[in-house]
Design a protein around this nucleic acid. Structure first.
Lengths: 221, 221, 221, 221
DNA sequence: GATGAATGAGACTTCATTCAT
DNA sequence: GATGAATGAAGTCTCATTCAT
């Protein structure tokens, strides 16, 4: 491993290399088959080195999970600035597509949180002490929708948080199902652009719009 | 084990007992800590007995996963018959609430699919040979929405599959996030009834109604 | 297993079927992989049945070994009667070929005696109480050679037991080596008839004949 | 294990210690009862250490078998140099005695090859890739006999390979039978020096030497 | 006598972790 | 800080044996 420094700069820091390696192994092998030996090999360092940077294997895995939320936030970061540009539909579709891609990437890693309660416990403890949480990823979406509401491009009485949850949740489930059934069997994704359909449906709503329909007056009493 | 038959009926069948025991252990301990020893103890049989009924531990876990989809289907089974009764909102809210409860129960177990690629591989193979798939759970929802469309209680041009995905996906994400952040920190569920808000948002849609329409200003006072 | 009696007669006796089955499994799988489950299946009976006829698995294996010596004796049984017929060389070559065939068959089974000291211990105890032993197989060979000595076709001062040991031992080693190196790599057996060469060498001896003896120069033209 | 280095030198290398320990256990307990736990204890290391040096238990056993052939070769190594010294009889008797001792030692270990076909398969594969084989042990014997032939101390027309096989085979069978029947019951070895009798018989041959014997002229037409 | 589901001791093996270098 | 051989607890799985039917 001495020659490694001649090839790729060790400047990245062994710790970061370990986290990256762990993420790769977690993604390809799953938590159950992610061994310290393989993570170390992937990181290009010795197995013992892992314990200079992390208390134990679970702490390394937790560090991987901590990188997930920022990645999500990155996707929605520029969204509020988009308010008023293009169309709401285009902006939300782009968001949905990015989210779908991200979910496909991260569900395999994120799911491992539930494969070990101790891992989940530590992850929650860390969230708590950082005041972080998944809503961090929603905030920009909510902010964007509020901005569009101010611009009149989104119904003023719509609930931005619920809308974000509907869109992102649908994308997550799309990813979840694709991962579960395999890339061949796509129960919904055989549409030209599934995300576009989701966005269109969310924008239009399900309620029949005919104002002359008498049942409509009691729609929401 | 002679007395066992005096206490609990062995009628359930050792195999079913093992699947049930595995589900309980999987839920409480996670895949990473679900040992054959504990599963056998929970099932009230010897460890070796497990291997009379399943090829290996992973096959038992797969059998647990196979029980999950039917449970989902059970929830939506009676939904199509509800078309035309009560209100669409009430029906969808009830569906969402049931789904949310189910997701909270099953995500910890279902997620373990991604903790081991071999487990996922076998699960997919099984789905393939059964012709099953997660769309089975959507079908009744889609059927319900179509029925409501026929009754004019849902917009004729709405996409039922997309709508189902939006609602169920949001519920899944609600569950996912609650499980991740812990029961105390609910980023969205501090609302009186989060599911109701989701349904309302989905029904109304995000698009602003024609501002020239005067009735619109009072739609939701 | 009820129908089995309709197909093959159970008359053979379950016990004998078990011994035969054990021998087949021992030969194909080796002691290390000869499980009671497979032996029972091969014998066409239930696993538990084995214990009605044998104290334990090792006793069944011992019974297999007890069948081996008789098989050897069968080969040499008619040998003494051959004295004076054909040529000594022909008779010994036929013996050697039969022995070689037998060793190839039985070494894999016989060797397993040494894979478990307890098995060997029981086998010896059984030999002792029967007064049997491997010399039983030599006796007819020795008797034959003695008869040939009486006929003047074998040197009077040759040691029949040593001669038997030399011939049978060489055949055993031939078999041993062939089994070890595989059927392709035959270090000695590439000769047209290895056994014939062995017999010829044994008959002629290694000592140079007296060079002053003129008849000697033509011994083998 | 810190103190171990104070007692016995670790210089031997853990791998070699494991092979030696495995050989001892194999010899005393047989393959069927040679557990990794006991081998590790015998080697003075942890059970897991075994798997740092060998793929699995069978690979360790194979390594033991690989030590056997060299040991044989060691015995015959100096034989060719003996040509012309002492008497052929003395040299062959010494060879036979060494071989007998070695066979008594190694048959229990070597036989285990046949107790597991997988073990045999791997052993053969290894032989093949090394170009080795049991003939390696015969070569020096054959070379010795050829040298003696050149010196006129062994019949020029004798087959050296057959002669080696006859002598070594007889010694092997002597060992085999002694191991089978136990140290008390020696069917042939009750002679003062069984190996000497074998050598004498091999040297003299079985053919009657009386040239005046008319039957003799047709011995090998 | 026959069955075969159940048993459970114990086998082989893995892998997170340590520590002398 | 880095290493990696060694550790040993704990895991999965096998299989000879039993026993109620």
């Amino acid at each position: 491993m001495t020659e490694r420094s001649l090839i790729s700069p060790p400047a990245a820091g062994t710790r970061a290399q370990l986290v990256d390696a762990a993420e790769r192994v977690l993604r390809s092998k799953g938590l159950a088959r992610a061994t310290t030996k393989e993570i170390a090999r992937e990181a290009g360092c010795a197995e013992g080195t892992l314990y200079l940077h992390f208390a134990d294997k679970l702490d390394l895995v937790r560090a991987v999970h901590e990188k997930l939320l920022p990645a999500f936030i990155e996707v929605v970061r520029h969204l509020p600035g988009r308010a008023g540009t293009r169309t709401v539909e285009a902006n939300l579709t782009e968001l949905g597509c990015s989210a779908l891609r991200l979910y496909l990437d991260m569900l395999p890693v994120g799911s491992s949180l539930f494969a070990d309660p101790e891992l989940l416990r530590r992850f929650r403890a860390r969230l708590a002490e950082q005041g972080a949480g998944p809503h961090r990823a929603w905030e920009p979406v909510v902010a964007y929708l509020r901005a569009e509401q101010a611009l009149g491009r989104v119904a003023a009485d719509a609930d931005p948080a619920a809308a974000a949850l509907l869109l992102l949740g649908a994308c997550e489930q799309l990813a979840f199902v694709e991962l579960m059934t395999g890339p061949e069997t796509l129960p919904f994704r055989d549409r030209p652009d599934p995300v576009a359909v989701l966005v269109a449906t969310l924008l239009a709503g399900l309620s029949p719009t005919d104002p002359s329909d008498p049942t409509e007056t009691e729609r929401r009493p």
